[in-house]
Amino acid sequence: MACFLVSAAEAVVVTAVEKAEEKKEKKPEEIRPEGVAETRIPLSRKLKWLTWMLWGGAALLAFEHIWHGEVVPWFPFLTAMSDPADKAAMFHEMATVGVCMAGLITLVWVGMCLAADRIANRPEPEAEGGRS
C-alpha cells in the first residue's frame, strides 16, 4: 500500500547524514601527509551505498504501487487514504512490511561494510600463474 515510504524516509535521513559526513571528511584529507595509505573505506562512501539501495528500492517499489493503482497523481496520492479502514491497513503495512524492508536493507548494508573493510585490507592477490 505504501510500504516504500518507510525506506524513502530512511533514505532522506541517510542522505543528509552522508552529505554532512562527506563535508567532515574533506577537511582532514587536505592536511593528510603524502604517502600515508588509506586502508579504511570512508564512512561517506559506505553511506552512499545505503542511500542508493534505499532510494533505488523505494523508487522501483513506488513504480509497482503506481502499477497496481495504489499511488495516484492527485491528492492525497495514496488511494488508501480516502477510506478509514484502508488507512488503518496501510499504516499497519508500513509498520510491519515497510519497517522490515528498511531494516533488512540496513542489515545487508552493515554486512557489506564489514566485508568491504576486510576485503580492502586483504593483501593483493598473486599474479596469474601463481598458486591458487
Binding site: W52, G56, G57, I105, V108
Partner: peptide, 17 residues
C-alpha cells in the same frame, strides 16, 4: 547494482510476508 539489489531486498520482504 545498488538500485536492483535494494528493490530485490524489498520485494523479498514483501514475498516473505
Amino acid at each position: 547494482c545498488f538500485l536492483y539489489w535494494g528493490a530485490a531486498i524489498m520485494w523479498l520482504v514483501d514475498a516473505l510476508f
